[in-house]
């Protein structure tokens, strides 16, 4: 769509949505939020981008195709399941550690974060693969 206001807004909204989704992803474990919702928010921004600029542009933005996104998301989930097993706990146990970073920041993180990140990535991949396929098949890219 050749509409300058729409194009600029879509770019802006994409940035805002991605930032919001990352915030939802990080606060997820104890508060409302989490990987699935964050993934949907991020995918919504990308869908708006796809409607305005066409699906090829989104595929370029994603860099890898959506199958790889789903696959790597699932692989990250698999890692988060295997870590507790390797440490002798039941599978999918939430294991927490505190990493101290420079500038006296300490990061309280653990396997749920890895799990949610995997969910986030694969949800983006799944929803975009559905939408991109629909757009290509029905020829909405004009």
């Amino acid at each position: 769509m050749q509409n300058i206001i729409l194009q600029k807004t879509a770019k802006l909204i994409l940035i805002i949505m991605t930032a919001a989704s990352l915030w939802l992803l990080i606060r997820g474990h104890n508060n409302p939020g989490g990987g699935f919702i964050a993934g949907i928010v991020a995918a919504t921004g990308l869908i708006l981008y796809a409607i305005v600029f066409g699906s090829q542009k989104v595929e370029k933005l994603l860099k890898y195709n959506t199958r790889n996104w789903i696959g790597s998301g699932l692989a990250i989930i698999l890692v988060s399941i295997i870590i507790p097993i390797a440490l002798g706990e039941p599978p999918m146990t939430a294991m927490w550690t505190t990493i101290s970073l420079p500038f006296s920041i300490s990061l309280h993180t653990g396997t749920p974060h890895i799990f949610e990140t995997g969910v986030y990535i694969s949800v983006i991949g799944i929803i975009l693969s559905i939408i991109i396929t629909i757009m290509e098949v029905l020829k909405w890219n004009s």
């Binding site: 199958r67 790889n68 789903i70 696959g71 790597s72 699932l74 692989a75 599978p91």
Partner: peptide, 20 residues
């Protein structure tokens, strides 16, 4: 663990099939 592998093995193939 021994039971959980029955979910992990198909999941492993699914991941590989998506990436390869």
């Amino acid at each position: 663990m021994s039971l959980f592998a029955h979910i992990l093995i198909p999941l492993g193939f699914i991941i590989l099939a998506l990436l390869i």
